[in-house]
Amino acid sequence: MTEQGTTHVIEVTINGRLYSRTVEARQLLVHFLRDTLDLTGTHIGCDTGSCGACSIILNGKLVKSCMMLAPQADGAVIETVEGLANDGELNPLQESFSRNHGLQCGYCTPGMLMAGTYLLRENPNPTEEEIRRGIKGNICRCTGYVNIVRSIMDVAGGHGSEQADGIVGEEQR
C-alpha cells in the first residue's frame, strides 16, 4: 500500500528516462511535468479537462494530465510531446503537421500530436470521421481543424495526402 500522506515519493518513466521526485498529493500531473520536471512541451489550456492541450500517453493510454494527480502516476510509463522527435529530427507525424500547416498559434499542437499518435497506434488506417472523433477531446482555438485532420491523414497507412485533399475539397464545395 502507498502510505497515506500529503506528500509522496513517486517514480515515473518519461520518454524513456526514470524520474524520482517527492510530490504533494494535490499537485496535478501537468504541473509535475511542467513545473517540477521542466517538461514544458505539454501545455495547460483550460485546466478543466475540456481542451486536451495537456494530453499525454500514460501506460499506453491517451489521457489529460490536468485531470490526474501526480501521485496517481507513480510507477507509470509516460510519453510526452518531447519524446516524439529523435535527436532533433521530427517524426513523420510532426513532419506532416509542418508540411500540411497543421498548426497556427501552436498552443493545441502538443495535445494534437499526442492524440494523433495514440489514434494511429490504435487504428493505423483511420477514416476522416475516425480522425475527427479521435481528436474530439482536443480543441484548436484557431479552428484549424481541416489542416490538423489532413496532417494526421497524410501519415495514416493507405491514405495519401491526395485522398485527404479530396475529402477536404468535397467539404469545401
Binding site: T2, E3, Q4, G5, T6, A25, Q27, L28, D74
Partner: peptide
C-alpha cells in the same frame, strides 16, 4: 490549478479500501 491540501492513499485491496473509508 492549486488544489486544497489533501491526503492520498493507494490501498492494495477492497478490504483495505473499505477499512480506510
Amino acid at each position: 490549478m492549486l488544489l486544497k491540501s489533501v491526503n492520498y492513499v493507494r490501498p492494495e485491496s477492497v478490504t483495505e479500501a473499505l477499512d480506510i473509508l
